[in-house]
């Protein structure tokens, strides 16, 4: 596996840093402007979740290039309180953002693949990938 570039999320400002790095990677791989914007929005959501609910964590990027896909994977890791009921946070309309259509279901929509592992009291790891078309 390649060296993984990461951005630590400690303050709200770090969300911008994560977006920027993600967008650079996306451009590099060959995503168009619409997908770049979608990836950036997904990064925002994931980074904001870390900032709001876990306090600190990090957003890492991995370039995927195998026989099947070429794309970008975003990995959001924190050691926060974890998510007790994942099905609930994945439900539309549940978002704490006040029904702005974002939240984790929004991330899932913006990306092509989405996976989440969470242990209460230990933390959360979310992996979201998008493929170049």
């Amino acid at each position: 596996m390649d060296f993984k570039p990461c951005v630590n999320i400690r303050k709200e400002w770090d969300i911008v840093g994560a977006r920027q790095l993600g967008r650079e990677k996306a451009k590099e791989i060959g995503f168009g402007t619409v997908d770049q914007a979608r990836i950036a929005t997904a990064i925002s959501e994931l980074a904001r979740n870390i900032y709001l609910y876990a306090g600190t964590g990090k957003i890492c990027f991995e370039i995927v290039d195998d026989f099947e896909h070429k794309g970008l994977q975003i990995i959001a890791v924190d050691e926060g309180p974890g998510i007790r009921d994942i099905s609930q946070v994945m439900e539309d309309g549940y978002t704490t953002s006040g029904g702005l259509g974002a939240g984790l279901p929004g991330v899932k929509r913006l990306m092509d693949h989405f996976d989440i592992i969470s242990e209460v009291g230990e933390g959360t790891e979310i992996r979201a990938s998008k493929w170049v078309r």
């Binding site: 914007a37 979608r38 929005t41 539309d92 309309g93 029904g99 702005l100 259509g101 974002a102 279901p105 929004g106 929509r109 913006l110």
Partner: peptide, 9 residues
């Protein structure tokens, strides 16, 4: 982008 997401939701 956010409008698009809200529309899909």
């Amino acid at each position: 982008i956010s409008y698009g997401l809200a529309y899909q939701e």
